[in-house]
Amino acid sequence: MIGSLRHWFFNPWVQLAICVLLATAAEIFLKLGAAATADSDNAWSWTGFTGLRSGWVWWGILASVVSLFNWLATLRKLPLTIAFPVGNAVHILVPLSSWLFLGEAILPRRGIGIALVLLGLMIVAKPAASLEAKL
């Protein structure tokens, strides 16, 4: 039972799915932390250091680090040319989550822009991943 659960958990596709979900969660946490510490009058706030005062930012860091480990576990078994295009699902999930969890309004112009970025990423994903793998 534990063996099969472990086998399932370390399946590269499961690792990739966890990676994408955690990367999305990290962006939401970081935005929550940034919003909680926003101070546009402070010129130093551009550096982002003030964000460290928020617990959300630390959750964001944790989610990013764990997501990185999942990504590395994925790349052990899946080639970058496959993992990279699938990983671009984060570009759908982040705007969706921004709308769903942060209540951000996605007006038509922004929606069209996001769709075009996504389309472009789908077009370039494979050749770009091949180039990155060779770099």
Binding site: E27, I28, L30, K31, G33, A34, A35, T37, A38, D39, S40, S45, W46, T47, G48, F49, T50, G51, V57, H91, V94, P95, S98, W99, L102, E104, I106, R110, G113, I114, V117, L118, G120, L121, V124, A125, P127, A128, L131, E132, K134, L135
Partner: peptide, 30 residues
């Protein structure tokens, strides 16, 4: 840290698509 600074001023749904440019940069550098 620059990301955090930018997120303090912009919506996530506004800022995040700009990260798609990283793929273009990698392709050009590659």
């Amino acid at each position: 840290f620059i990301n955090i600074g930018l997120l303090q001023r912009f919506d996530l749904s506004y800022f995040f698509p700009f990260q798609g440019m990283s793929v273009i940069l990698i392709a050009f550098v590659g």
